[in-house]
């Protein structure tokens, strides 16, 4: 068979180690001057694509990193390229009107067609809106096979893809022929660090800037966010003076 042409969509999200805060107007999460990074599931996708190339069972012709987002999304495309993607495509989308999963899936379909990809590896969800729909919608639109929540991916030289999937309480192994959509789960691999030499090389790799218009798409949101609220704060405890105080308090609460 001919080689793999892998498309890896990545998303710039609030760093998962940062506690998100709801803005005053309760319309969204505060994003200004908050640390952003690559969606952790997308890191796994890039890593897997690079590992497929390193494994050499099937030749990998190219790995494209793709992102639709604000200008800053270019940073994480550079990270993806530092990890091993060959080139990047950045579709600029205004931060105020982000795409919904279906919009992203439609856009990805066009990108897949334009770059003649035969494998799309995406994170099973992005940790900001947790929709977990894009991969499945894309497979539907393309009419391709799909394997979700992958914890192991093997591709034979005849183009057969074996994927071990995380399912409730265990794993499930599925097999399909390329082309295919795979979504990644946490156990799949351990993403590498971006090394300095590769960060420098990544600066010279091509990064195409596009707009939705270039793909003849309009992606007006169908949903309106009515309100965003934080979970109720944990109630603080009380301090007791001594052991007797504690026992008294426990009795009072009916715990003793």
């Amino acid at each position: 068979m001919s080689g793999l042409r892998i498309l890896v969509p990545v998303k710039r999200v609030i760093d998962y180690a940062v506690k998100p805060r709801v803005n005053r107007a309760q319309t969204a999460v505060e994003t200004t001057s908050v640390k952003h990074s690559m969606n952790p599931f997308d890191e796994l996708s890039i890593e897997e694509a690079v590992r497929l190339r390193e494994r050499k069972t099937v030749p990998v012709e190219e790995i494209i990193a793709f992102s639709a987002g604000p200008p800053k999304a270019a940073d994480i495309l550079r990270t993806a390229m530092a990890m091993g993607a060959d080139r990047g495509i950045h579709v600029q989308v205004d931060e105020q009107t982000p795409l919904e999963p279906l919009g992203v899936a439609k856009l990805l379909k066009k990108v897949v067609e334009a770059s003649n990809s035969n494998l799309v590896i995406l994170g099973k969800q992005s940790i900001d809106d947790d929709a977990g729909q894009t991969g499945q919608m894309l497979a539907g639109l393309l009419d391709w096979a799909q394997a979700t929540q992958a914890s192991k991916v093997e591709i034979g030289d005849g183009g057969e893809v074996t994927v071990v999937k995380e399912v409730d309480g265990g794993v499930e192994t599925v097999r399909a022929k390329l082309p295919m959509v795979i979504t990644t789960d946490l156990r799949l691999n351990e993403p590498r660090y971006a090394s300095l030499p590769n960060i420098m090389k990544a600066k010279k790799k091509p990064l195409e800037k596009k707009t939705l218009k270039d793909f003849d798409l309009e992606a007006a949101p169908r949903l309106k966010t009515v309100k965003v609220t934080e979970p109720p704060p944990r109630k603080g405890g009380v301090k007791v003076e001594d052991v007797d105080g504690m026992i008294g308090k426990l009795k009072e609460l009916g715990a003793l």
């Binding site: 760093d15 180690a17 940062v18 640390k35 990074s37 952790p40 660090y193 971006a194 090394s195 300095l196």
Partner: peptide, 14 residues
């Protein structure tokens, strides 16, 4: 320096 990495996110910093 002969090699190096740069943390890309908070987790890598840690």
């Amino acid at each position: 320096v002969s090699d190096g990495v740069l943390a890309q996110d908070q987790t890598q910093i840690q």
